[in-house]
């Protein structure tokens, strides 16, 4: 089965090898307010999964739970094979996270930031790995620059660098293109695609920019007011909604229950 619309649970396709993110009935409540409501989905190894939704839909809350920063109210989830509540330390060892609005330590250089964060991840001598990652991201020129002197685009590159230093199995990116100029957006997108292609890293991208989903993602999920209303591969989505002219129209169609608009 594939392409269930407005369903709460969805499999990307019939067979499910190599699941790295397995979410079942995940819920987060703040008092009476339900931020994430009974969300279930799975992401396979090597996918670039785009998690889209309007502001306040619950995307960041979902990511915070999957990155063990927040305890769910109910439901379970496994990331890289480990349960996010009971085995949270094992999850932390296997994920990388770039949150929205990362500033980093401004009085430290890019290298010093990465060295500190790398050691916190358990890398004893991070020098060689830092150089390797900066080379990969084409950011070696920033190595000795203080973060306070770096542009937003440079910081995002360093932000990605810190997230992949320890070679995580799953990389979480929360609104990675937020605040970037068009060149910065392209550079970041290219870095993410290169990372996925060359290392096979599974990447989970929170975004409300549909243009980035079409350019980066292999599958997507749509969150609306805490409910997961759609999840499928990008290719099947574009096929299903071939009458719509853009992903924006597809998204609006999904949001407003547009199964009638499919085919």
């Amino acid at each position: 089965m594939s392409g269930l619309i407005q369903g709460n649970y969805m499999e990307i396709d019939g067979s499910l090898p190599n699941i790295v993110i397995d979410v079942r009935s995940l819920t987060k409540k703040y008092g009476d307010f339900v931020a994430v409501n009974n969300v279930s989905f799975r992401v396979r190894k090597g996918e670039v999964f785009g998690f889209i939704g309007h502001n306040g839909a619950g995307k960041t809350t979902t990511v915070n739970m999957l990155t063990t920063l927040l305890q769910p109210t109910s439901g379970i989830a496994k990331v890289a094979g480990f349960e996010i509540v009971k085995e949270y330390m094992e999850v932390k060892k296997r994920i990388g996270y770039l949150p929205e609005n990362l500033q980093l330590y401004e009085s430290m250089t890019a290298y010093e930031n990465l060295a500190y964060l790398g050691k916190l991840s358990g890398i004893v001598n991070p020098d060689a790995r830092i150089l390797e990652v900066l080379t990969f991201l084409d950011a070696t020129g920033y190595k000795d620059k203080k973060i306070g002197e770096c542009s937003k685009g440079m910081r995002q590159k360093i932000g990605i660098a810190q997230a992949i230093l320890h070679k995580p199995e799953v990389l979480f990116l929360d609104e990675p293109t937020s605040g970037l100029d068009p060149q910065g957006v392209k550079q970041l997108r290219d870095s993410v695609l290169k990372l996925n292609e060359q290392t096979g890293m599974t990447i989970f991208v929170n975004t409300h920019l549909l243009s980035e989903v079409t350019r980066m993602c292999t599958s997507l999920g749509v969150l609306s007011h805490g409910h997961l209303i759609y999840v499928d591969s990008l290719a099947k989505t574009l096929e299903r909604f071939k009458n719509e002219e853009s992903l924006e129209e597809i998204y609006l169609s999904i949001e407003h229950g547009g199964e009638a608009n499919a085919k």
Binding site: T67, L69, K92, I95, Q103, Y105, L120
Partner: peptide, 18 residues
Amino acid sequence: MRERKASVMKIIFSRPVS
């Protein structure tokens, strides 16, 4: 305030640090 202003709390606690 240091880590809060640097907005690094999330990346620190998403690491195996209690």
